[in-house]
Design a protein around this nucleic acid. Sequence first.
DNA 1: CCCATTTGACCTCA
DNA 2: TGAGGTCAAATGGG
Length: 321
Amino acid sequence: MDSSWHGNLPANRKKAIDELVRGQEIAAQLKLVVNRSIGVDESVFAKDLVKKIMNSFNSSLYMLNGGEFDEVASQIPQVGSPCWDGRKSSKDSGESGKGTAELKVKDRRGCYKRRKSSHSRTDDSTTLTDDGHAWRKYGQKVILNAKYPRNYFRCTHKYDQQCQAIKQVQRIQDEPPLFRTTYYGHHTCKNLLKASQFVLDPSDHRHDRDSSILISFNSNGDHASNKPSDSPLASFQTVKKECCHKEDSMNMPSYDPTTQYNNQASSSDYLLSPDDYLSAFDHGDVISGVNSSCTTSSHSLDMDGIMMESADFDDDGVFGF
DNA sequence: CCCATTTGACCTCA
DNA sequence: TGAGGTCAAATGGG
C-alpha cells in the first residue's frame, strides 16, 4: 500500500485514505474477475458497476488529497541549483578518470532529497499502460517484503525541458498480474504525444469496447493468449523501439532475486504514433483500463487520472478545471 | 557514436 | 540504522 503521499495528513484522514486505497485495490481485483469470468451480456452491467466503484474511490481519494496534485519539484534539484548538472553526460567531462570517481561521489552528497510526502497518483492495472509520455528508467530497487522490485522512471525531458515528472512501477500481484504505477510531480514538458492512458490489455479488449477504446498492438494478429501468466506486454511490442527486442520489457514477473536482472523492466517509453493517438483521442474518449478509468457517460469525476494529466500542463501547476 | 538500461553505491529520512 | 530513492559508471544495442 502506498502511503508515502499522505504522510502529513491528519491521522483520521490518513486512515480514511488508507481505507479507500484498500477498497480501490479490491475493486481493481474485482474488475479483473468480472472481465474474465462473466459473459458478454452480464459484463456490461457488471463492469459498469465496477467502474462506478472505482470512480468513487478515485474521486474520494482525490478530494481527500486536497484536490491538488502537488509536485515533487521541491524534492528535486532545481535548475541552476548547486545540484543541477544540466544532464552532464556520463561520458562528457573528458577528465572523468578513475581518479575523479570518488570526488564525484562526494559531490553528490546532499544533492537530492528523498521524496517525503508529496502528492501522488496511483494506478493499478493488469497491464502497463501508456500515459503518453516518454519515460526513462533511472533505477530499480528491491523492496522489503515485496515480491518484485520497484522500478523508477523519470520523464525523458527532465533535462532538456526540466520536466520533473517521475513515476514508480511495481508489480504487486502475481495472479492475475497487477502492476501499480505511482506518479509524482507533473509534466512540464511540451514534447509529448498526449497525456492519456491507453490500455493494452489483450484480455480486456473483447469486453471493454462498450466504454473504452482499446488499442491492441499485437503485431502478429494473434490476440495474445489470456493466460494470466502471459506478459501483459506481450502485445506491446510495436510501440517503441526498445520493446521490440526485449520481449519482457517492463514485465517484472520473472524477477528472481537470485538471478540476474535480465528480465527486469527496461523501457517504459511506450509511445503511440501521433496518428494513432490523435485518432483515438478525437473520440473524446479516454482509453483506460486502469483503476482511474473513465466511462463515456460521466467525464467529470471519473477522469481522475486523465484530468490530472491534463491539468499538469498548466505552467504554474494550477489545476485548471 | 549516441542513447537507454543496468546495477552497485551513495544519500536521506523515519 | 535500515529501507527506500537517486545517481552515475558500465554496458549494450541501434
